[in-house]
C-alpha cells in the first residue's frame, strides 16, 4: 500500500498520537518509515542557526548539532522503536513546509503523516490560532501524495481499520481523494462510505429551499455519486452512499460519530479551485481540528 512513509515531526508531545500511527502503519504495510525533523534556518555562511523556542534568541549551531537532534529523536521515540523497529532518521535545517515537500518529492514518498499542531493548544485557544498558515496546512495543500493528519490519539485505528469515510464536494481534487479512499478500502477489505453533505445554506442564496427541492438535490447527488465513483469500483460492493443536509463539516463530524469511522478522506479545498491555488478549505480545516479519527487530505493523483 505504501512503500515509503514520511513522518514529519517536531518531536514534541503534540506529535505523539501521529507517531504511534506512523510506526503502526509502517509495520502493518511493511513500509520504510522515515522520521523527518526540520529545525533552525540555514545561514549565509554555509552553517545554520537555531532559534530557542522559549527565549526566541538565535544561536549558531555546530556540525554536531544534527547528530545531537537525531539522538534526541531516538530518545523521544525509544518505546515505539523498541516495539516496531528502528526507522530512518533525517534531520535538516530549513523552513519546515518547504523542506518536507522537497524531501517527499525527492524520495517519492507515498504518504506523509503529521500532527495537526506543533503545540498541544487548548481547544479554546485553537479557534484563534487555527491551522491556517501552519506547516501542516502548507504541506497538505501542496503535497503530491496523501497527507494523513492526526490530531487525537487512537490506539487501534489502523490495526482494526474497518470503516473509511470519503467526503466529497464533487471537485476535481475529490476524485483523487476517492481513488485513495477506494484503494485503501479495497486493499484492506473494509467498508467504504461515500458521503456528501448538501450545503443548504449556500445552495439557494439565502432563500430556504422547500422539501421538494431538497429531495431533488439529494437524488441528483446520489446519481452523481454513483456515476462518478461507484462506476469505478467494479466488483467492490462493501460500500454505502449517504447524503446528509446541513453544514458540511458539522454533518461529516456527525456522520463519523454515528458510523464510528476510522479514517476520513477528503480533498482539501472548496469546489472548482486549481490544486495549486487551493487553500485548506474551511470544511477540511474544521474537520481536522475536531475529528476523533485521522483525516487524510488528498489533493493530487500523482502518488496514488
Amino acid at each position: 500500500m505504501f512503500k515509503k512513509i514520511l513522518f514529519a515531526t517536531t518531536s514534541s508531545p503534540a506529535c505523539d498520537a501521529a507517531a504511534k500511527i506512523a510506526f503502526e502503519l509502517a509495520e502493518k504495510y511493511k513500509s520504510e518509515l522515515i522520521l523527518y525533523h526540520v529545525f533552525g534556518v540555514p545561514s549565509h555562511g554555509g552553517g545554520f542557526s537555531v532559534t530557542d523556542y522559549v527565549t526566541g534568541e538565535e544561536d549558531d549551531a555546530g556540525p554536531d548539532y544534527i547528530e545531537f537532534v537525531k539522538d534526541e529523536m531516538k530518545n523521544t521515540y525509544d518505546t515505539l522503536i523498541e516495539k516496531h523497529g528502528e526507522p530512518r532518521f533525517e534531520v535538516l535545517a530549513g523552513i519546515p513546509a518547504t523542506e518536507i515537500l522537497r524531501f517527499a518529492r525527492k524520495e517519492e514518498i507515498d504518504c506523509i503523516i503529521m500532527g495537526s499542531h506543533t503545540r498541544a493548544d487548548e481547544t479554546g485557544a485553537a479557534r484563534f490560532r487555527g491551522i491556517v498558515g501552519t506547516t501542516m496546512q502548507k504541506v497538505a495543500q501542496r503535497a503530491r501524495c496523501p497527507v494523513l493528519i492526526i490530531s487525537r490519539p487512537c490506539a487501534t485505528c489502523f490495526w482494526y481499520f474497518n470503516k473509511i469515510i470519503f467526503g466529497t464536494d464533487f471537485s476535481k481534487a475529490s476524485m483523487s481523494a476517492f481513488k485513495f479512499a477506494f484503494k485503501m478500502a479495497d486493499s484492506i477489505g473494509c467498508k467504504l462510505y461515500l458521503f456528501h453533505a448538501l450545503d443548504i445554506d449556500t445552495s439557494q442564496a439565502g432563500v430556504a429551499p422547500g422539501q421538494k427541492s431538497i429531495e431533488d438535490k439529494i437524488s441528483a447527488a446520489r446519481a452523481r455519486l454513483e456515476e462518478e465513483y461507484v462506476s469505478q469500483m467494479k466488483d467492490f460492493d462493501n460500500y454505502e452512499i449517504s447524503i446528509w443536509e446541513g453544514v458540511p463539516y458539522v454533518e461529516l463530524l456527525k456522520f463519523a460519530r454515528e458510523t464510528s469511522g476510522d479514517l476520513i478522506v477528503m480533498a482539501h479545498h472548496t469546489r472548482n479551485v486549481d490544486p495549486d491555488e487551493a487553500l485548506l478549505g474551511s470544511t477540511v480545516e474544521q474537520v481536522v481540528l475536531r475529528s476523533a479519527c485521522p483525516v487524510a487530505s488528498v489533493n493530487r493523483p500523482d502518488r496514488l
Binding site: 485505528c157 463519523a256 458510523t259 464510528s260
Partner: peptide, 20 residues
C-alpha cells in the same frame, strides 16, 4: 457560544473509549 465551541470537539464515536 463558548460551550458550543468547546463541545464541538466531542463528536467522538461511542466505541472510542473502548478502543483506548
Amino acid at each position: 457560544e463558548g460551550i458550543a465551541w468547546e463541545l464541538s470537539f466531542n463528536f467522538n464515536p461511542l466505541e472510542c473509549s473502548i478502543r483506548r
